[in-house]
Computed example of a mutant assay.
Amino acid sequence: MTQVRDLMTPMPQTIGFDISVEKALEMMQEYACHHLPVLNGGKLVGVLSDRDLSMARHDSSNAKTEHLVGDLMSDEPIVIEPSAEINTAIRIMLNNKINSLIVKAEANQPWGILTSTDLLRYVVEKT
């Protein structure tokens, strides 16, 4: 069976919780990604998605307010073991209506991120 570690992106780009939303958008465009794990002092504190940014842009009540990543991020990222089977990851994403999971670090291996894009790429390559 294919495991999360086989499809995850190791050591993904990250962003600080106190960085501007504009900088986050620039980073997502530069690195062609849709999710940025959010760190505070090197500790994972959330995940910022392009959907979070899009909702903030369309929220007229916040149009004139300068946002920081910490204002918009999901502050309870779901963490999965790298040894988990892909079907487990898919179920977690579907049940929580999310498009990424943070992958826990293993001994001598970096932590990572698994996204719905990774899963779709896997399905296409299998067919």
Rank of each mutant, 00 (worst) to 15 (best):
L101Y: 03
V103L: 08
M11I: 11
S20Q: 07
W111D: 11
P12Y: 05
I98Y: 05
E106D: 12
K104E: 15
I78A: 02
E30D: 12
H34M: 10
I19C: 06
S60Q: 08
G70L: 00
D50I: 09
M73L: 09
P12E: 06
A105I: 03
M93C: 09
P82A: 03
E22A: 15
S74K: 08
L44R: 00
D52I: 11
L39Q: 04
Y31V: 07
D52T: 12
K43H: 06
D50K: 05
V103G: 11
E85R: 14
T65V: 15
M28L: 12
A107L: 15
F17Q: 13
A89N: 03
I92F: 03
K104P: 00
L36M: 05
D18L: 06
L25T: 13
N40M: 10
L25F: 11
L53D: 06
D18I: 01
G41W: 07
G70P: 00
I19M: 12
S49C: 05
E81W: 09
L53H: 04
Q29V: 12
N40A: 12
D18F: 11
S83Q: 15
M28N: 13
I98E: 09
S74M: 05
K43L: 07
A56W: 08
G16N: 12
E66P: 06
E85W: 04
P82K: 05
M28F: 14
D50F: 03
V45H: 00
P37W: 04
P12M: 04
L48H: 06
D52L: 01
L39F: 02
V45E: 00
A84Y: 13
K97M: 10
V38T: 01
L48P: 02
E106L: 03
E30Y: 08
L101C: 04
T88V: 13
N40G: 00
S61L: 06
S61M: 11
H67W: 08
D59R: 12
T14Q: 02
H35M: 12
S74V: 04
E76W: 09
E26I: 08
I80E: 11
R51F: 04
N96I: 01
T14E: 07
D59F: 07
I92T: 15
V38C: 03
I19P: 01
M11Q: 15
V21I: 10
I90T: 10
N95K: 10
N87A: 11
S60H: 10
G42L: 02
I92E: 08
L72I: 10
V38W: 01
T88G: 06
N95Y: 00
S20K: 10
W111Q: 06
G41M: 03
L36Q: 07
L39I: 02
Q13T: 14
G46K: 00
D18V: 02
V103N: 09
V38F: 02
A89P: 05
N87K: 13
E26M: 07
L101D: 05
G70E: 04
E76A: 13
V69N: 03
A84T: 13
S54Q: 13
M11G: 14
S83H: 14
N95V: 00
D50W: 03
T88F: 08
D59G: 05
I90M: 11
E30S: 09
E22Q: 14
I98W: 07
